[in-house]
Simulated assay, not measured.
Amino acid sequence: MLLLYHPEGKAERVDLCACLEPQLTALISGQEHLAEPCEQMTPAATVYTASCRTCGGPYDKPWRRIRP
């Protein structure tokens, strides 16, 4: 479980992704990018949070962008 804090001061509980094969996406500079799990933390993963397209939960493990 993760607590997300909103600018209005409200906190929201969100369940983390627990999918066996997560389908990830990350919102970077207003654009959606496809992502995939990886073994080591990447620069993008340290700054942005990926979300799973299957369950909708935030993904808190290492991920990397998939470049087309």
Rank of each mutant, 00 (worst) to 15 (best):
Ala45Cys: 07
Gly57Lys: 07
Leu34Met: 12
Thr25Glu: 15
Ala11Gln: 14
Leu4Glu: 03
Cys52Lys: 02
Pro62Trp: 06
Ala35Phe: 05
His33Ile: 04
Arg64Cys: 02
Pro43Val: 15
Ser51Trp: 14
Pro62Lys: 04
Ala26Tyr: 04
Asp15Lys: 09
Arg53Trp: 05
Glu39Gly: 13
Arg65Gly: 12
Cys52Leu: 09
Glu36Arg: 14
Leu2Val: 11
Leu3Cys: 03
Gly9Thr: 01
Cys55Met: 10
Ser51Gln: 10
Ala26Asn: 08
Pro62Gly: 07
Ser29Asp: 13
Glu21Trp: 04
Leu2Gly: 03
Pro43Tyr: 02
Ala18His: 05
Trp63Asp: 11
Thr54Glu: 11
Arg13Asn: 07
Cys19Tyr: 01
Arg67Lys: 13
Lys61Asp: 06
Pro68Trp: 10
Pro62Ile: 10
Gly56Gln: 11
Ala44Asn: 03
Ile28Asp: 13
Ile28His: 12
Pro37Tyr: 03
Cys38Val: 03
Pro7Ser: 14
Ser51Arg: 15
Thr42Met: 01
Arg64Asn: 07
Leu27Lys: 09
Glu12Val: 00
Asp15Cys: 14
Leu3Gly: 00
Val14Glu: 03
Arg65Asn: 12
Ala26Val: 14
Ser29Gly: 12
Leu24Met: 14
Tyr5Met: 06
Val14Lys: 11
Pro37Trp: 06
Thr49Glu: 10
Ile28Gln: 05
Glu36Thr: 02
Val14Gly: 01
Gly9Asn: 03
Pro37Arg: 15
His6Trp: 00
Glu8Met: 06
Leu24Asp: 07
Pro62Asp: 02
Ile28Val: 14
Cys17Glu: 06
Cys17Ala: 06
Tyr5Trp: 06
Glu39Ile: 06
Glu32Asn: 08
Gly30Cys: 14
Val14Phe: 01
Thr49Cys: 14
Pro7Asn: 10
Ala35Cys: 10
Leu27Cys: 15
Pro43Asn: 03
Glu8Ile: 00
Pro58Trp: 05
Thr49Lys: 08
Arg53Glu: 15
Thr54Gly: 07
Pro58Asn: 04
Cys19Val: 03
Arg67Asn: 14
Lys10Glu: 11
Ala35His: 02
Pro58Glu: 05
Ala35Gly: 11
Ala45Met: 11
His6Asp: 12
Cys17Tyr: 01
Asp60Arg: 10
Thr54Met: 10
Pro37Ser: 13
Pro37Ala: 15
Arg65Met: 13
Glu8His: 04
Ala11Ser: 08
Ala45His: 00
Lys10Leu: 09
Ala35Tyr: 00
Glu39Cys: 02
Gly56Thr: 09
Arg65Cys: 15
Gln31Arg: 15
Ala35Trp: 00
Thr42Tyr: 01
Leu2Asp: 01
Cys19Arg: 04
Cys52Phe: 03
Gln31Gly: 07
Asp60Lys: 03
Thr42Phe: 00
Glu36Ser: 13
